[in-house]
């Protein structure tokens, strides 16, 4: 697996040295892929913590980006708004989980009152809450800020830099940097900190984790919060190019799903690599393989996914984890 990836990277570098267009398309693909990857990573975090696919992930990212815009409208500078937004996103992610769990609790309680014991299906219920959230957030954004397209400032200058004959967009390079940076920070957090370790424990074996002192619910909430932060970063990075719109993340989320599954839905590294690979492959296919027109992009992405899953059902980076009942 690692060999295959290394080979792919070498091929990309050689291609980039040979052809300017190849280099430009690769960098542009990495930038979009970085966005897919961040969002995919957010999905994976939540999936690992609670086995829930968070369908509202894209809308949460959209909504928090609007919040950043609003803060800037009120006169707060870019980085101030950036940091505040990440904080708000974190709180929002925690609140969403609390809300979803609360909804499940109320439902079970009501059922118990009605004499129906053990409603079960908590995961499904939470998934449905996220779908409801998706609709709610999109509507709320349109209602609060109007559906009009709005421009959004970039953290990076719009001018390109030239390397040889190739013009790279500073914004694209910045996006790649931020996406990879946040992934590294998260990796370090999960790998080397006490809380990170506890979060992993809570996600893997909640009962055992509880009995070694891990506050599982707090860790799950933390996971949702971090996922929301990642989503917000993705939104802030992509908004300067695609502008603010309540529907801005709709398709991106589909690609992020594909990236997450491609990488193995339980693997954070897989999600990021899956996102980057998807971004680059789609750009290069569209450039050099002529039957891959834009309407075929999504089918091709899903086709790739299917092939990977046929060869390796757990995704590129997935482990087969046997679970007892």
């Amino acid at each position: 697996m690692v060999l295959l990836l290394a080979a792919a990277c070498v091929a990309l570098v050689i291609g980039s040295l040979v052809s300017d267009q190849f280099a430009e398309q690769t960098v542009a693909g990495l930038a979009t892929g970085g966005i897919f990857g961040s969002l995919a990573l957010a999905l994976v975090l939540i999936y690992r913590a609670t086995e829930v696919i968070n369908f509202a992930q894209g809308q949460m990212a959209m909504f928090t980006t609007y919040i950043a815009w609003q803060l800037m409208q009120w006169g707060i500078g870019y980085w101030g708004a950036f940091v505040l937004t990440l904080g708000i996103a974190f709180a929002g992610g925690v609140a969403l989980l609390a809300f979803a769990l609360g909804a499940v609790f109320v439902r079970d309680w009501t059922f118990e009152r009605m004499g129906i014991k053990q409603a079960g299906g908590g995961v499904i219920a939470v998934v449905i809450v996220t779908i409801g959230m998706l609709i709610l957030l999109e509507g709320a954004a349109a209602w609060i800020w109007s559906p009009e397209i709005k421009s959004f400032p970039s953290a990076f200058p719009t001018r390109p830099i030239r390397v040889g004959g190739v013009a790279f967009s500073i914004q694209d390079l910045g996006t790649i940097g931020v996406a990879l940076g946040s992934v590294v920070v998260l990796w370090v957090f999960f790998q080397f900190t006490k809380v990170g370790l506890a979060m992993r424990a809570a996600a893997l074996r909640p009962f055992a984790a509880r009995l070694v002192g891990v506050r599982v619910n707090a860790m799950l909430a933390l996971g949702w919060g971090l996922a929301a932060v990642l989503g917000a970063i993705a939104g802030l990075m992509i908004a300067p190019t695609i502008f603010l719109q309540p529907t801005m993340m709709d398709t991106i989320l589909i690609y992020a799903f594909a990236a997450a599954v491609l990488g193995g839905i339980e693997s954070p590294a897989g999600a990021v690599v899956g996102g980057l690979a998807l971004g680059v492959v789609l750009n290069l296919l569209g450039t050099y393989v002529h039957f891959v027109t834009s309407e075929l992009r999504l089918p091709v992405a899903l086709g790739m996914l299917l092939i990977v899953l046929l060869i390796k059902p757990t995704g590129l980076f997935g482990h087969r984890v046997v679970r007892k009942v």
Binding site: A28, A31, T32, I242, T251, T287, S294, E295, R297
Partner: peptide, 20 residues
Amino acid sequence: VEPVDVTAPDVSQQLLKLKA
């Protein structure tokens, strides 16, 4: 002529080809 989907997340691939 570069086609693009109305829902495309980005158009960088098409624009780079048009430029090239």
